[in-house]
Design a protein around this nucleic acid. Structure first.
Lengths: 336, 336
DNA sequence: TCAAAAATGAGGTACGTGCCTCATGACTTA
DNA sequence: TAAGTCATGAGGCACGTACCTCATTTTTGA
């Protein structure tokens, strides 16, 4: 800051006013300071900054509540990181929001006070009221990031998630190699209104039609990410297609999928690919009912979200770079 | 530190002496202070500490030089992280050591000065002189970590790497599913004297014999991780086994593997699994000569190594916890 | 032209730690 | 018992920043 002050020909107090957006600085002076900052490549020392104000960086994670086990593992990943974050002067909080209750999420965002919250991380579908709440929070000075599913058109500062089209392509590519003789494969989605599910389906179809013409597609069927509904659906599916050779469940409800497979007595005789490493899919892998699980690595996502929150706290950088989240591919043999 | 001093009934200066191992403290006093530290759960603030001594944490990476492309990507991963590390007051340096030149690595370790280096990260095979050098560096107060391949029996403070037995198991599990009709599969290693290669082989055999009795094994053959030697080897192999249906190369030399497959005209007609995402394996995936690449994610390894170095700098903790490095599974369709 | 308002400078304290000096008191040894 | 050694305390400056007060300068508006 001394260097910046000298280069800009102003005092430390003025540099401080510019850096922290305090009033009482002429526009021309602000410009001089910002120029000096840029030409010197000065970047505020986040640790010293947090220490000086003797306050932690606060990040609030809004995570859907309900029966979706993946959301639980996201929440667990947050709590696993609390300790390490604390030693980096970061305070992580989780708020569970009733799934699909957009009003509750919007209210939660609106209730955030920029004096006690620096960054909000949300998992949401695309809804107009969420979009408005995100933009309002951004205006109040709270950096908002989207997790798992993006919110295009909003002022969210960053998105953390996997490439779902690539995930769908990977599933198709594996199933295709698993079934060199061709066959019939069913696709199950949670809902065709969910962005990530649609993207996976798109990728899956892409590769199947391009590279594996010997495979016939059934579906997509909708299981609404629920255990019971998915079980009924798969039971009926297996009944109607005695020669079915593969299933790709690109949504949740995997407990139902595994149950239906076992009850039919055909578990292990079909190649099955599902998403997200949770209790039911782990069990499915171990028992052989599921061959492959594609996972978006909740711990990695939270790690990157926390890292991104730190970058965002430095303010200036419009664009934040994070390590990409890789799609984990799990078989029984590399279960972690 | 004030709290610790009060709890131990000593002054700040004495707490400082204990924390930084400075002389002039009676054993009984040291004990009182350490007890207070433990009961208060006090942990030194690394950032404030680094700031106070106005010196960065210095980490030196010793990475083998030569024709092994994976080692290059490790070095690149280090340089990609330099910037971010700098803003966390860490200084990363890379030293390339002639591959297999254990004398050079030992000399490099011996040359480290604890005043200018806090932590060394080495990639090495198991050799007695390296072991001695590691222990000497540890005694001088330099934390040594092993990367990729561990050095059991040494005083290294931490190991960062993947579970190679699981990697081998995964390869077998995939190949088995790729070849539901059974067939003959060849295994190629770099050298049967390398610990990680042996572990992969062990896992591969484990699963093949347990779950896929229809598959017959050829090899392991040794390609010594070299392009030319591997090409010759694979060409001969394909010649002698016209009905070969799969290859697992658990070592390097993948450029040779791909070349041999292409020249034989059988690329794409065998299921091929290789290790490490490098230029030749990417090309193999894209062209269809290689089906799956198992990758140990150099960026993740470096990220965790840096994080572990920070924990080690706090001193006390005998055991450091890091996120496990996951084995990446790459097909043409999820290439990053 | 002058007073009010706005902009800026100067300098202090704090955050948690490292590292230094100097003073004081306790203990050892001849 | 005196001199010396060792253990400990007290306190200061530094690191890079936030945030505060107060004085001074510059600009603005009537």
């Amino acid at each position: 800051m001394h260097d910046v002050a000298r280069a800009a020909g102003v005092s430390l107090a003025t540099v401080d006013r510019v850096l922290n957006g305090r009033p009482g600085v002429r526009a021309t002076t602000t410009e001089k300071v910002e120029e000096a900052i840029k030409s010197l490549g000065f970047s505020r020392d986040l640790n010293a900054s947090l220490m000086a104000r003797s306050r932690d960086l606060t990040v609030v994670f809004f995570i859907p509540d309900g029966s979706n086990e993946f959301m639980d593992s996201l929440a667990e990943a947050v709590s696993r990181r609390v300790g390490q974050a604390l030693s980096d002067r970061m305070h992580l909080t989780t708020e569970r929001i009733r799934a699909l209750d957009t009003g509750a999420l919007a209210a939660g965002l609106d209730a955030l006070d920029p004096r006690t919250c620096d960054c909000a991380v949300i998992v949401t579908s695309e809804e107009p009221d969420i979009l408005a709440a995100v933009d309002s929070a951004t205006r109040r000075g709270i950096a908002v990031m989207t997790l798992v599913s993006d919110l295009p058109g909003s002022n969210r500062r960053h998105f953390i998630g996997v490439d779902n089209v690539a995930a769908g392509r990977t599933a198709a590519s594996l199933l295709g190699r698993f079934l060199p003789q061709g066959g019939t494969v069913a696709v199950i989605a949670g809902s065709l209104h969910l962005r990530d599910h649609l993207e996976r389906l798109e990728g899956f179809r892409q590769i199947l039609s391009a590279d594996f013409s010997g495979i016939e597609l059934v579906g997509p069927l909708e299981g609404h990410d629920e255990r019971g509904e998915t079980e009924t659906l798969v039971t009926k599916l297996l009944d109607e297609h005695p020669k079915l050779s593969g299933i790709y469940n690109l949504g949740a409800g995997n407990a139902g999928l595994v149950a239906a497979l076992k009850n039919s007595g055909r578990a292990g005789r079909l190649r099955v690919i599902a998403h997200e490493l949770t209790a039911p899919t782990r069990e499915g892998l171990r028992s052989g009912a599921i061959d492959v699980v594609l996972d978006q690595n909740p711990d990695g996502e939270i790690r990157e979200a926390v890292a991104a929150a730190r970058s965002l706290a430095l303010g200036a950088a419009r664009h934040v770079a994070t390590d990409p989240i890789e799609i984990g591919i799990f078989l029984r043999d590399n279960l972690r």
